[in-house]
Design a protein around this nucleic acid. Structure first.
Length: 576
RNA sequence: CGGAAUGUAGCCCAGCGGCUAGGGCACCUGCUUUGGGAGCAGGAGAUCGGAGGUUCGAGUCCUCUCAUUCCGACCA
């Protein structure tokens, strides 16, 4: 590519809307343009990197027996109604009508479409397993798009779906994809960590996220310093706690007046106690039915864990009026003692860690002291439903402490089971002629986000430092004095040599000053700069600068193409 | 959904109710320069997000609206 003919343009200034390095650099390097909130044009440089990431994905998946398909972005509502997600998915799903008034959506994910596609073809046990994937634009009407391509509304995603005969097969498919993802992200040149993850609304019971570690990440990861445990905070389990308190230490229950004091902070400050001695009592609505949740005052309820345990389609804190109607008292004074017997009570493990709790009295302006598990209240279940936190004991090795990191989720793998295949009747006949639903898994990679995450991890004050496997271009040839015929001719010869050698090369043949070209080359982040100036060309040398190390070296003009070609080829396939 | 801020040339930003709306970057012309985003001179480019209103006079004040960005979102 000749820069004199290229569409691209770099900028010196950044928009104040660009908050993080990857967004700022993509903006300055002329890789993306914002068209609307969370919606971007991908300009040539960005698309070249994206295509390379896509091809790495294709190579790793195809070599593992996956097949690529392409499904529509616009999907009729009836498929989504079959699984109930038309109603459950909420505002993230962009819905609209066609000219005939029929409902459609922009697909945010494709479980319904792929399951429909597969059920039309699937007949016999002899056909499975299948693993189908696509790379395609998705649309999710995010409540808060931000950070450029990091959280867009329209974004490029690779989504794959596996169909197996049984659970064993599905788990094999799952771990095969886990390995594929490890290979893919290694090749893309990002530092990442696979962590235990929550499954969320998509369903299923096993999931890992691939998190690129970066301070700008939106996700919180907890990992053990002593063992290999790592989990998203949405999923991380809290420390095991002993549940047999000594009843001889229980004190007598006592009611205290706490006029106007409702929150834990207010009451604990009013009573001069620490929030950790407080038993927090929350009323949730799970599928519109009330549930009381008890938890230590210094812990927070992890609603995704709670929802998973309850198996509820929807879960939210009950409104004040709902609490008053079902419990008979306003929030702030709810407690575990004397609740209506028909309301289920679920306690977090932390409730077993303390004695002589302070709680609401189920009476206005009153709390009670010395409330104890077993003597004063008996929850129907005691479960791990709290957020783990940095400093907790590791739930796996019981030795190390958890520490907190920020991560960018670039991929996630799910074991789905038969949730979709049952709801949509995607089944096959087994050896006995019995119909059985396929066991499914689904697997996503945010392609644009992977590119952004790579920039987030690989840049300096001068610009991007592309890992070779995903660099838009591998080499830039920089003739510094175009009016020097020897320089211009040599540059053309070397440029052509790289092209013939199959190296992705640009020549900066713009009539610009040297400094201008250097700044641009550093900003764009070409892994190798081949600099040709009058002096060095006259001496029969090219100056070569490696962007990542900053190392500069001189190479005889006759050798430069071969030497740099070999350097590129060694790195083109990336890590692992 | 709640709160806040911002919309002025392709990009980044100034602009006190008062004359013909400024600057930097980028762009065009000429001269000069030519190894880390050069200099000088000249030039083109804006219905100041949109609609109403107040006023002798509105980019500036008021109302509505649209858009973008940031913070927060039930913890009793």
């Amino acid at each position: 590519m000749r820069l004199s003919q290229s569409f691209y343009r770099t900028l010196k200034e950044i928009s104040k809307d660009a908050q993080i390095p990857s967004h700022q650099l993509m903006f300055r390097a002329g890789m993306i343009q914002q068209l609307s909130s969370g919606i971007y044009n991908y300009l040539p440089l960005a698309l070249r990197s994206i295509r390379k990431i896509e091809n790495i994905i294709r190579e790793e998946l195809d070599s593992r027996g996956c097949e690529e398909v392409l499904m529509p972005a616009v999907v009729p509502a009836d498929l989504w109604q079959e699984t109930g997600r038309w109603d459950l998915y909420g505002d993230l799903l962009l819905r609209f009508k066609d000219r005939k008034g029929n409902d459609y959506c922009m697909a945010p994910t494709h479980e319904e479409v792929i399951t429909d596609m597969v059920r039309r073809n699937l007949k016999s046990w002899k056909q499975l397993p299948w693993n189908l994937y696509q790379i395609q634009g998705k649309f999710r009407d995010e409540f808060r798009p931000r950070y450029g391509l990091m959280r867009g509304r329209e974004f490029i995603m690779k989504d794959a779906y596996s169909f197996d005969l049984d659970e064993d097969g599905a788990r094999r498919s799952y771990w095969q994809m886990y390995e594929a993802y490890t290979a893919i992200f290694s090749r893309c040149g990002v530092q990442f960590r696979a962590v235990d993850a929550a499954t969320g609304e998509i369903g299923g019971d096993m999931s890992h996220e691939f998190q690129v570690l970066a301070s700008s990440g939106e996700d919180l990861i907890l990992s053990c310093k002593s063992c290999d445990y790592a989990a998203n905070i949405e999923k991380a389990t809290t420390p095991r706690i002993q549940l047999t308190p000594d009843e001889s230490t229980f004190e007598v229950v006592e009611t205290v007046d706490t006029p106007g004091q409702k929150t834990i902070v207010e009451v604990s400050s009013f009573l001069g106690t620490d929030p950790s001695g407080f038993l927090k009592s929350l009323v949730y609505e799970a599928d519109s039915k009330p549930v009381v949740v008890l938890i230590a005052g210094n812990r927070d309820v992890n609603e995704s864990k709670l929802q998973a345990f309850l198996g509820a389609g929807t879960l939210r804190l009950a409104s004040d009026s709902m609490v008053e109607k079902t419990i008979g008292i306003l929030p702030g004074y709810v407690g575990p003692v004397g609740l209506p017997p028909e309301i289920p009570v679920i306690a977090d493990l932390s409730v077993g860690s303390g004695i002589n709790w302070i709680s609401g009295a189920n009476e206005a302006d009153k709390h009670i002291r010395n409330v104890n598990l077993g003597r004063d209240f008996n929850p129907s279940r005691i479960l791990d439903i709290a957020f783990a936190a940095a400093g907790d004991t590791c739930p796996r090795c019981d030795e190390g402490r958890l520490e907190e990191h920020r991560g960018i989720e670039v991929g996630q793998v799910f074991y789905l089971g038969t949730k979709y295949s049952k709801l949509m009747d995607c089944s096959y006949l087994d050896e006995n002629g019995d119909a059985r639903p396929a066991e499914m898994g689904c697997y996503g990679i945010g392609v644009g986000r992977t590119m952004a995450a790579a920039i987030e991890q690989n840049h300096d004050e001068n610009g991007i430092i592309w890992p070779v496997p995903i660099a838009p271009w591998e080499v830039v040839v920089l003739p510094l004095q175009l009016n020097d015929e020897a320089v211009a001719d040599t540059a053309e010869t070397i440029y052509e040599g790289f092209r013939l050698a199959g190296i992705d090369t640009v020549i900066d043949d713009r009539n610009e000053r040297a400094g201008f070209k250097f700044k641009d080359a550093d900003l764009i982040g070409y892994p190798v700069q081949v600099v040709l100036g009058s002096r060095s060309v006259a001496a029969g040398k090219a100056e070569v600068k490696f962007r990542a190390s900053g190392e500069k070296t001189e190479i005889p003009l006759d050798d430069v193409v071969v030497t740099i070609r070999d350097w590129i080829l060694e790195r083109r396939l990336g890590g692992s």
